[in-house]
Computed example of a mutant assay.
Amino acid sequence: MLFANDTEWSLRAAVALINTAEEPDTLTNVAELDAWFEQHNFSGRHDSDAAELEALRALRPVLRELLTSDRDHAAGLVNRLLADAQALPQLKRHDGLDWHIHAVPLDAPLDRRVAVEAAMAMIDVIRADELSRLSVCVDGHCECLVLDLSRNRSRRYCSTTCANRNAVAAYRARGKRADT
């Protein structure tokens, strides 16, 4: 394991939230918000309304900037997000989870909790100088983020769809070269 479980969980949730903005946008209604919330096992307050949906949609470019910035800029963004949220890190144990860090109350708005969770995760990434674990998908038609937690740092695509599209294109290109 490269990072603590809560760090990996927060990074996965942040990347998934950011990637909902790519075409087609998959965070356009409350039902999609509810599905994202459930998929990423958030606990605490969930208003499940249009205001919460819009707040999370507005957070996506902020998180994208955070996860794609260089180390110094990312550190400044982390500090700003934590200060804006008046974060106070504390160890918590709940819902069958062992000790992990929460920096805002569980009844804080979801967008604030997501921003702080991502900022706290980025503290570990920055301190370990592991920003190379975050990148943009190498598929030329995709702008999604990739979180590479593999041991050998080999993940280049955001999904099997992008990986398969590129494998097929490479196969066809090899076939054309063989025919000439």
Rank of each mutant, 00 (worst) to 15 (best):
H94S: 11
G76D: 09
P89R: 12
R45G: 00
L91C: 04
H94M: 09
L33C: 06
H94P: 01
I101K: 07
L88A: 07
A83Y: 13
W36K: 00
T20V: 07
L88Y: 01
A58I: 00
L66H: 09
F42T: 03
H102T: 03
I18E: 02
P24V: 07
T26V: 06
A50T: 13
W99Y: 09
A55E: 13
N41L: 14
H40T: 02
G44I: 13
D34S: 10
G44S: 11
E38F: 09
W36V: 00
R64L: 05
P89I: 13
T26I: 06
H94V: 11
W99M: 01
H94D: 13
D49L: 12
T68A: 08
I18V: 15
L56F: 12
Q39A: 14
S48G: 12
L56D: 03
G96A: 10
E65T: 13
R64N: 05
L81M: 15
T68Y: 13
A87P: 05
L91S: 08
D34M: 08
A103P: 02
P24R: 12
D84N: 13
A35C: 04
D34P: 02
D95Y: 14
L91F: 15
L59A: 05
S48M: 09
N79T: 10
A21P: 02
L56P: 01
N29D: 15
S69P: 01
R60Y: 02
L59F: 11
A83R: 14
Q90K: 15
V78N: 06
S69V: 02
P24M: 06
L56N: 02
L33H: 04
S43P: 00
W99E: 01
D47C: 06
T28G: 06
R71C: 05
T68L: 15
E23M: 03
A74K: 01
A51H: 12
R57Q: 04
A31Q: 15
D47M: 12
L91W: 13
N41Q: 14
R71L: 14
E65H: 11
E52F: 11
A87Y: 12
Q39V: 04
E38M: 08
Q39S: 07
R80C: 03
A75P: 03
S48D: 08
G76K: 13
H73F: 14
W99K: 00
R71H: 10
G76M: 10
D34Y: 10
R57N: 00
D34V: 12
L33T: 04
L82Q: 09
T68N: 06
A85P: 01
R71D: 09
D84W: 08
D70V: 00
A75W: 15
R93H: 04
L88M: 04
F42S: 02
A83C: 08
H40G: 01
E52Q: 13
D49G: 05
A35Y: 07
P24Q: 09
P24S: 07
I101L: 15
N19I: 01
A50C: 03
Q39T: 11
K92D: 09
Q39D: 08
R60F: 03
L97V: 10
L82E: 07
L27M: 05
N19V: 00
H73L: 14
G96R: 15
A83Q: 14
V30F: 10
V62M: 01
W36S: 00
T68Q: 13
G44N: 09
L63N: 03
R71E: 14
L91P: 04
